[in-house]
Design a protein around this nucleic acid. Structure first.
Lengths: 131, 131
DNA sequence: GTCATGGTTGACGTATACGTCAATTCGGGG
DNA sequence: CCCCGAATTGACGTATACGTCAACCATGAC
């Protein structure tokens, strides 16, 4: 089964990004498409990584941070020392994400309180206007 | 009760930001400290807003977006039309945050799977090394 | 007085993350 | 052969979010 690859144009349509962005990520070593002559061919691995890149960006991580996270996802040669390092980094990142979710949860709670307040104010105003 | 205000230096220590950042936020109309002569005095309102600013940044929002969110938190003159607009914007933002939390949750789940995988690999290697 | 501390306003510099444009190449279609 | 569409490599431009530095003012300590 020869791996199914995407051209840069297909990647752009599939992920809603520009060619410039993809080349920029490649230059920053976040992606490594296969080269056939001058042309790029993006593999399933590249597509998975791009998905993580875009998600990382939505969560406010820099490309440099995302690059480290991607390396963390790569098991490499599978040597014990490297696997241990990967595990440590992954668990650290896990803590970070869980904390982020907790902070997000309290932000949501605060916003809900604020929405309730505004609704009360609107109800008052409504009654006064209607009364 | 005269409001308790902070100097710029106190703000910097309290929130771990630089004076430059605070002045930049002011220029972008995210903060509006009281002016006494040339000096700035940050009120409780400024402190609450700065807290939201820094939190917004951690979640990957731009200062422009954060500015809109801050306006959303301000009830203003309390006119029905404005309150309605505030409510709409707040509910929209609420949806956005909830979606972000869901995406974060699935990212955490994926990371946990990956961690489990790495642990299995380590266990295998460990046994082989120990055997 | 002067010196340190803490604050002020420009103004220019910088890192990140691309956008944009020019010049070129390469594989078909007519 | 010429042209089109899709790709390529520079190279310069731009928006965001500040950092950094110069030059200045005010206040209290000595």
């Amino acid at each position: 089964m020869t791996e199914q690859t995407y051209t840069i144009g297909e990647m752009c349509r599939a992920f809603d990004v520009t060619p410039r962005a993809l080349r920029f990520y490649e230059q920053k070593e976040l992606l490594k498409p296969i080269r056939e002559g001058q042309h790029r061919h993006y593999t399933a691995r590249d597509r998975a990584r791009l998905k993580l890149i875009l998600r990382g960006k939505r969560f406010g991580f820099s490309l440099a941070e995302i690059r480290e996270l991607l390396e963390l996802y790569y098991v490499g040669d599978g040597q014990v020392t490297q696997l241990s390092a990967t595990l440590d980094a992954a668990e650290k990142h896990h803590v970070e994400l869980v904390e982020k979710r907790e902070e997000l949860t309290s932000a949501i709670a605060e916003l809900e309180e604020h929405i309730a307040l505004v609704k009360r104010l609107l109800a008052e105003k409504g009654h006064r206007a209607a009364g």
